[in-house]
Design a protein around this nucleic acid. Sequence first.
DNA 1: AAGCTGGCTATTGGAAAGCATAGCCAGAAC
DNA 2: GTTCTGGCTATGCTTTCCAATAGCCAGCTT
Lengths: 176, 176
Amino acid sequence: MTRPAGSAGSDTDAIITLTGRFADRDAWQAEGWCRIEHALELIGTRSAMVLMREIYYGGRRFDELARRTGLTEAVAAKRLKQLVADGLLRRRPYQEPGKRTRYEYVPTELGRELFPVLVALMQWGERLGREGGVELVHAGCGSPLGAVVKCAKGHEVAPPDTAARLVTDGNGADLR
Amino acid sequence: MTRPAGSAGSDTDAIITLTGRFADRDAWQAEGWCRIEHALELIGTRSAMVLMREIYYGGRRFDELARRTGLTEAVAAKRLKQLVADGLLRRRPYQEPGKRTRYEYVPTELGRELFPVLVALMQWGERLGREGGVELVHAGCGSPLGAVVKCAKGHEVAPPDTAARLVTDGNGADLR
DNA sequence: AAGCTGGCTATTGGAAAGCATAGCCAGAAC
DNA sequence: GTTCTGGCTATGCTTTCCAATAGCCAGCTT
């Protein structure tokens, strides 16, 4: 299908502004290139997300993580193993007196960098209107947290002020 | 299992600071209360996420959305229907000359508010090291976007400065 | 009226996610 | 030794996700 130029919906409700070669969406596609898809390959399951949530709440040990997420031990073990393999968590030995050496799961730098994703999801989940729940606040002033989109130079950016840019891999690879 | 007080891992790697009644994780659990889980019920599938991504890139019509996400038409139709039912998208009639009236999918306010989630995921996905891809930048200055966690009063907040707070539903309901 | 087309819908099947239950194993307690 | 326990591991099943393919239908064209 060839889309008549400029006819695909009014642009009054466009969210991201596509500029340059991106303006014609028929000329490129994001499949396989998309960083969101890459991210979802690692944390795209419910079990991975709720385990990382519990890690953020301070859970470290296997039985606590399994119990508090409501996952079965089998699912928790499998997913924790994968999160370690993917570099979000690290196994760290510990030993309680009179007990054998065990391992607890602590976040790596990559795991910590998931913070804005978790906060953004919690913020959006609040919008869904179900009352109650746990809210994150700034320990210093007590105000609730939110994720704000800013550019590297510090400007706050709303969706219409956003443009998409192609990043090549240096090997001359191109979109599509 | 009763966890000996203060023994569950060193707190040097704690991410979120739990205060007050939250300090004892055995006294509460997030299952069912968690806003992240609520959010994932709506956008927890890969198909929902990539469809919303294409909506952000400006895709509006069924065949374009299906084609650019790489989803089959059956999956795209089912997921779009669900996204409309959940209030992230809205069906808007359009008619091209000589064609019958059709519907395109435009984001609602709720759908637009997903922006920080998408940006945070893209930012984190970039960290995974795979080269290439589409990057979002500020249209004004060209710098790449990121999601920054701030409190309502405008302070930037790092994970250790974060506290968790219980929000009741006004009916005296409590955690667990 | 007949045909074409875009936007779905239905069916089938395979893969993955997740639950329930049971079993295994290293090592401390005894 | 033997027992006990926490942390997994294995097995079987159900559900959900998604691909592939085929079919349906409103209404525009001719």
